[in-house]
């Protein structure tokens, strides 16, 4: 199936939302149906799933917003 760039972008965003389990029921159904006919999106979804698995596998940590703010103010105090 061919679709224009904007349409692909919308579908890709739904696919991304699915990775975070934040797509609505309707969006999920719409996307699943689309995947039955579209190789481009199927390929994108497969890569997206693999990326999610890799990120989980890497077990990455990062600071929360609050922790970042704390660290910033600590450092600011020390600089001044």
């Amino acid at each position: 199936m061919n679709h224009d760039k904007e349409n692909f972008h919308q579908l890709a965003c739904i696919c991304d939302k699915c990775q975070y389990d934040e797509a609505s029921f309707l969006e999920k159904v719409q996307f699943k149906l689309h995947l039955m006919f579209c190789e481009t999106c199927k390929d994108y979804a497969a890569k997206n799933n693999r990326l999610t698995t890799l990120i989980k596998q890497a077990n990455i940590s990062c600071l929360s917003l609050e922790e970042q703010k704390e660290l910033k103010s600590y450092l600011k105090d020390k600089i001044t």
Binding site: A12, C13, N48, L51
Partner: peptide
């Protein structure tokens, strides 16, 4: 937010 997430995921997938 979802546009940003999409851009970063695409860039990350490309890089990896």
């Amino acid at each position: 937010l979802w546009v940003i997430i999409h851009r970063v995921r695409a860039a990350l997938a490309d890089c990896l």
